[in-house]
Simulated scan of single mutants.
Amino acid sequence: MSLVLPSELVVDRFLPTVRSMLATRLAERGLTQQEIAAELGVTQAAVSKYVGGESGGDDRFREDPETVATVDRIAAGLAGDEMDGYDALAELLSLVRTLEDRGPICELHEEAMPELRGLGCDLCVRGLDPDVRAERDVLANVRTAARTLASIPGMADYIPNVGTNVGMCLPDPRDETDVAAIPGRIYAMGGRIEIPANPEFGASKHVATAVLAATAVDSEVHSAINIATDDDLLAAARAIGIDPLEFDADYEDRGDHLQTQFADRGTVPRIAYHRGAFGIEPATYVFGSTAVEAAELIGDLLETASQ
């Protein structure tokens, strides 16, 4: 893994772009290249390149509304003697913090370090506090589980028409926004598993309902994955010692119904299923302490069913 600090991107990509933008704005306001050089702390030759459009930089900053507004504000302030270097620096530092919070700097950082994609990285903004680490760990686990599903031979045959999703919650979840899942769900196409996006919190109300019902009864159960109901898989579950729970599909409040079923059993089963109802496709939920654990159980079921 290559280690790239966001500050490196600020120096290499952000500053040249902003200096170029400022030089152009100040030139438009009548400042000479020598005066612009003094304001920006660069050479007159550098200003000449900036104004001539030879500075390079990154268009993501040039097109970012916050950057454009800040540069215009600084240029007006410097040209009108209403702002000094200290004020301009304060404006730029505030802008950098904004752009690091899921903005262009964050985007560039994820390009430089692909390992950060899909992890909900907030290091620049909040630091690695326990809450951020928990969120990152959940997102990483869901992403790994989705990839695990995609690698299971024959898995495409068990993706329901409505799609499959992988859900995992934070400790002590309050609602569906504390459950991470795949936006748009996982679907099968041409015998292959397609994962449309990296996981996000609040991305699926459907699978979050099952996760929240399960963790309300057993705080060690944090994940659920929905797949198609199939008798061979249910038989495979019984063959490896799992007693699936059947529940009714036609309930307006699925979460309360599931929670009641789990409480009546006295535990959250590893597998719960229904056989559908009018307008409701049959579905099976596979539960686990983590999303990866639930995905691995699905792999075991498919392997057992194929024997």
Rank of each mutant, 00 (worst) to 15 (best):
R62Y: 04
A90F: 12
G80P: 01
L95E: 12
E82D: 05
G80I: 02
P65I: 14
R117C: 11
T98E: 15
G77A: 05
P65A: 11
G77M: 06
E91S: 10
G77S: 05
E115R: 02
C121A: 12
D101M: 05
C121F: 03
F61G: 02
C106D: 13
G80K: 06
G103P: 14
E91T: 01
R73A: 08
L95F: 09
V68M: 10
M113D: 08
E111Y: 04
A112Q: 06
V71M: 09
E63Y: 10
V71I: 14
D59S: 13
T98A: 11
D81T: 06
E107P: 00
L95A: 05
D59H: 08
I105M: 01
D59I: 07
D81G: 08
T98G: 12
G120Y: 14
T70V: 15
T70M: 08
L119Q: 13
L116H: 10
D72F: 06
A112W: 09
E115Y: 05
D122F: 05
G85S: 13
M83T: 09
M83P: 09
E110T: 13
C124W: 00
D59T: 11
T70A: 14
L89Y: 15
G80V: 03
L92T: 05
E100S: 13
L78S: 10
R97Y: 03
E66W: 04
A79M: 04
D59N: 12
E115V: 08
G120V: 06
V96L: 10
A79Y: 06
G77E: 03
S94F: 07
P104G: 11
A88R: 08
D59R: 10
C121Q: 08
E63A: 11
D81A: 13
A88F: 01
D72W: 07
R60E: 05
L108K: 06
V96M: 09
R97L: 04
I105H: 09
D101R: 10
D87S: 14
I105G: 02
A79S: 15
P104K: 08
P104D: 07
T67I: 03
H109V: 14
L108M: 07
H109A: 14
R62F: 07
R117I: 12
E100P: 00
I105K: 11
P114L: 01
L108V: 03
L99M: 15
L78Q: 09
H109Q: 09
A75F: 02
M113P: 04
Y86P: 00
P114C: 00
D59A: 11
G120M: 10
D84A: 05
R62P: 07
E115C: 00
R62V: 13
G85C: 04
M83F: 01
C124Y: 04
E107A: 15
R62T: 15
A75V: 10
H109P: 00
R62C: 07
D81E: 15
D72G: 15
R73D: 12
E115W: 02
L93R: 14
D122C: 06
T67M: 03
D81S: 11
P65E: 10
A88G: 15
I105N: 02
T98H: 11
L99D: 09
A112V: 10
L99F: 09
D64N: 15
P114E: 00
D72T: 13
T67N: 01
R102P: 02
D122S: 01
L108I: 07
D87Y: 03
